[in-house]
Design a protein around this nucleic acid. Structure first.
Lengths: 357, 357
DNA sequence: CTGAAAGCGCTAACAT
DNA sequence: ATGTTAGCGCTTTCAG
């Protein structure tokens, strides 16, 4: 493959055209130089700037990075990108990146440690200044790759014992859900969580169970099916199979909660009445489906994670942050509220639709 | 800010340790070199590889890029990242990127041309080999920034007259939706689209209207409120306000469709009975809410867009692709199918819940 | 089979 | 106020 020499104008071209050295050009054009006027006469500055403009000069970030060992890029690892939750977090990260003129390199890891370490190395090859991991696993030591290279890292969404993280107050979220259900008179509670290594589910379940026990209720049943629609359906089927349908349900994701209520309703348990349901993340879906849900401030969570990483890169000491959560009550838990798409009657049967075309 | 010389081992260190020149090390360690054995004795190769391994050598991608003018990175522009649609497309792109060992730089543009051109320039500063735009605007000439630099680009999701794109067969999607509704005996059709510059909505509306007119129905009413939950609610209110509620509805997004049916239901129009609704993208939400929807193959769309870009970078000629769509029928259009969360009765009132904590 | 030398585009000591 | 020099880590002629 032949070298396609870049067509971009360089500082050298400007220097030649203006009749100064590249050094001077560099000093004037470097946006991080606080006092360009210290380095050249007003006249020179003018002509350099003008030449840069007419040539359409843009600095080559790669060359700068190679020289300065700072790339103005950060890596972002997400467990899976095709999910609302992570997309919202990433939107917050992207917003801060834009504000600071930083580029984000992204990669998803599907929560597979092998994949993650491979991609981490690859990302470090690009000399990212720091990395944000949204896919931390509790207790795991996979982050050594990044640590060994002394690249600062911040976790977001899921915490890990040994690293700085920005998470929602998941324990509070769990308590909030339980207290809400209890305040509605619910007594047989259940919670659907994800896998053990995800602090989100673990912590929310902890708070949920604590609050239930403090209220003198029997311990909530924990279903660890996950947080997808399918997971919710599976969990519901498990409840039905064990003839142990709760009257208060908390799911780790709005979709999972909806998947569960959908199945339960088909078996005669009316959402909002027979069973009060609370989802997580207060996503648009929750609104569209009148699902009570706990907002986790995902966008802001993303923002803070990059802000913290940048603080760290700027030399500051940083510590983990726990962001407040909020409860939005809708008809899925309180039937006295208006509702659009939730129902109360009993409907027979259950399939997943039919495909055409 | 002091230069923090990178702690990573370099080819020079390996060369010194093994007692050969960096040239030889480079030749052996370069993964793109088809025949390393052509360049050194088996013995030398062994010791270089061994030294590289023990030192934990990894090549500096930035240095390689600077030298070769190929960065093995691509830029990805999304209108907004916090949406299921784009997240699904991006997941496909990410998958291909992983397969080819390419890094993706991402940025969202919020469909704002100014923001996009700024960020495009910034991305080009990082010498991306190519760019994928998921935020094309019909008729706009904003892509000049990338073109001027002769950086190959591919559009995804939304098409544009002058560029290669990978899109769903949106016209077919519109026809499919209309034909389905018509086959159910619906005659007063409506469609909720996004803004004019989005080919997705424009094309789907075109197909939808065509099919309706070919069937001899009166022309469907077009509501251009957008594709969010709020947009759906607004469109529904507009229908109610004009006393012109359709019996068949097609929305550009599952969430938008759900937002509309939610409001309509609160005003006495039962989903699946009084009004048959079809959404777009067949997202998990559609499944969870028993919403009939048109699948657009988003993941594959993302995959193809990067594959095409890589073909282009490899020197091939590439042309636009239109991917097939599919209809999944659920209770929102066909009440004979089982349903979980959709309803038929009438519910009074309408708010957006209350906030606590 | 191996190496010396040049240089990608830029920045930063160290002159003057 | 400006230039000289060196070099970030790597690839790639060109020479042997």
């Amino acid at each position: 493959m032949p070298i396609r020499v870049s067509q971009r104008p360089t500082q050298r071209q400007i220097a030649a055209q203006v009749g100064v050295s590249v050094t001077t050009v560099s000093r004037i054009l470097n946006p991080d130089e606080p006092h360009p006027e210290r380095w050249a006469s007003q006249e020179t500055i003018e002509s350099i700037r003008k030449a840069a403009h007419t040539l359409g000069y843009r600095r080559n970030s790669l060359a700068v990075s190679l020289r300065t060992s700072r790339s103005q890029t950060v890596g972002v690892f997400l467990p899976s990108i095709g999910d609302y939750t992570l997309a919202a977090i990433f939107a917050g990260i992207d917003e801060v990146a834009r504000e600071y003129g930083i580029m984000a390199l992204t990669a998803s890891t599907l929560d597979a440690p092998g994949l993650r370490s491979d991609r981490t190395l690859k990302m470090l090859d690009h000399l990212v200044d720091g990395i944000i991991f949204a896919d931390a696993h509790l207790g795991e030591q996979y982050l050594s790759g990044a640590e060994a290279q002394r690249v600062p890292l911040v976790l977001v969404h899921r915490r890990h014992e040994e690293h700085v993280s920005v998470t929602a107050d998941d324990v509070a979220a769990g308590r909030l859900a339980a207290e809400h259900l209890i305040s509605l008179g619910r007594t047989r509670l259940a919670v659907i969580v994800g896998r053990r290594f995800m602090s989100t589910g673990v912590d929310r379940a902890t708070g949920f169970i604590q609050a239930a026990e403090e209220a003198g209720l029997e311990k909530p049943v924990v279903y660890d099916h996950g947080f997808t629609v399918q997971a919710g359906r599976d969990a519901a089927l498990a409840m039905l199979g064990r003839d142990n349908v709760p009257d208060g349900l908390f799911g780790m994701h709005d979709l999972c909660t909806l998947g569960a209520t959908s199945v339960l309703r088909q078996h005669g348990y009316a959402t909002g009445e027979d069973i009060a349901a609370v989802g997580s993340y207060d996503s648009p879906v929750a609104w569209a489906c009148d699902l009570t849900s706990i907002g986790m401030g995902l966008h802001n969570m993303g923002r803070r994670s990059l802000e913290l990483l940048l603080d760290r890169l700027g030399g500051k000491e940083i510590t983990s942050e726990t962001l407040p959560v909020s409860l939005t009550v809708r008809a899925s838990s309180d039937p006295s509220l208006p509702r659009g798409d939730l129902t109360w009657g009993t409907i027979p049967g259950a399939t997943n639709g039919t495909n055409h075309n």
